[in-house]
Simulated assay, not measured.
Amino acid sequence: MLWSALLAVYILWGSTYLFIHFMTEQMPPLYMASMRYIVAGTLLYSYARLTGMPQATPVEWRSAGIVGVMLLTISNGLLTLGIQYIPTGMAALLGGMLPVFLLSLNWFSFGRQRPSNAALMGLLLGVVGVFFLIKPDRLQPVGGAQANLIGSALVIAGNFSWAIGTLLTPRLTLPSGPLSSGIQMLVGGLVLLFISLCLEPVTPLSIFQAPPKALGSMLYLVIFGSIIGFSAYSWLARNAPPQLLSTYAFVNPVVAMLLGSLLAGELFSTQSLIGALIILAGVVLITVGKK
């Protein structure tokens, strides 16, 4: 179960960056992100209830809602906005900042637990690898230096919110797996929809105006990114140590860069390959160095 969940998060989430770009090419980003989570949350919640899972208590609804807002409304909303300014590969590479936030917050605030020396060395290698990856030869920001700054700041802020939500998850009273994920997506998606209606030129029925490419990409994100990938991540957040969980942020950029080079014309240079190899070395050290 552990390695199956890790594999789902490693591979499937690495592909979501590109499909977020496809989903929002011709549609408002926050609106499409909200639709993604409302649809996925409705399916997961309905499945959980139809298979006999008990109704969540008010405390469980509140806890799952808090996590949903941190992970989906804030973090994924900022990521979706950031991809409007920078290439998908660069957005994925900035995800390499997440382990820094996870291990630091768990060390100094949440868990008061110092990572092992091997895990710290793996973290350092991962950051060095991201440095190599984030500066490929021809991977340029969409709108120049200012767009690069805006997009990078949005993605990094989203990573910080994701780290807080991840570390809060095992400390809150949550319902069982699919029910918890469904509630998180419903609450996170509905809050995101409210923000979208306030900020973007949309109505609740604007989804019917979306082009086929946007709808197909949203369907992929609903099934593989949200239902399978997010459910696997939620299970890992409850059952895996932060050091091991954080390794996905080192693997996702490698997957995203490969897909970006194949499907979106983003160059995967020799320098990027070196960065990917350094990142994988960091993943190994963090994994074997977990307490």
Rank of each mutant, 00 (worst) to 15 (best):
133 L>S: 04
130 V>T: 07
124 L>S: 14
116 S>C: 06
129 G>V: 02
120 L>S: 08
138 R>C: 05
112 R>S: 13
132 F>S: 07
129 G>E: 04
124 L>E: 02
121 M>D: 00
113 Q>G: 00
136 P>Q: 07
139 L>F: 01
118 A>E: 12
142 V>A: 13
143 G>K: 03
132 F>G: 02
122 G>L: 02
141 P>T: 04
141 P>G: 04
109 S>R: 10
140 Q>F: 06
142 V>M: 13
140 Q>S: 07
114 R>W: 03
144 G>C: 11
134 I>L: 13
116 S>P: 06
138 R>G: 13
124 L>C: 15
135 K>S: 12
136 P>G: 08
136 P>E: 07
114 R>Y: 07
144 G>R: 11
116 S>H: 06
112 R>I: 06
123 L>V: 07
132 F>M: 05
144 G>N: 11
109 S>D: 10
126 G>A: 06
125 L>D: 01
138 R>E: 14
110 F>I: 10
111 G>C: 09
128 V>R: 03
112 R>V: 01
109 S>A: 15
131 F>R: 00
139 L>M: 12
139 L>C: 02
139 L>V: 12
115 P>V: 09
116 S>Q: 02
120 L>F: 06
144 G>E: 09
124 L>K: 00
122 G>Y: 00
124 L>M: 13
126 G>T: 02
137 D>S: 12
119 A>G: 02
115 P>Y: 06
122 G>N: 03
111 G>S: 12
125 L>S: 03
131 F>P: 00
123 L>G: 02
137 D>W: 10
136 P>I: 06
137 D>R: 12
133 L>Q: 11
138 R>F: 14
119 A>P: 03
120 L>D: 00
129 G>Y: 05
136 P>R: 10
138 R>T: 15
143 G>R: 10
110 F>V: 11
141 P>R: 07
130 V>L: 07
124 L>P: 03
127 V>I: 14
118 A>R: 15
121 M>I: 12
128 V>C: 08
140 Q>R: 06
145 A>M: 08
138 R>N: 14
120 L>M: 14
143 G>F: 15
135 K>L: 10
140 Q>A: 06
123 L>E: 03
127 V>N: 03
116 S>T: 15
128 V>D: 03
136 P>V: 09
128 V>G: 07
109 S>V: 15
115 P>M: 05
130 V>A: 10
131 F>I: 10
142 V>N: 05
137 D>T: 15
142 V>D: 09
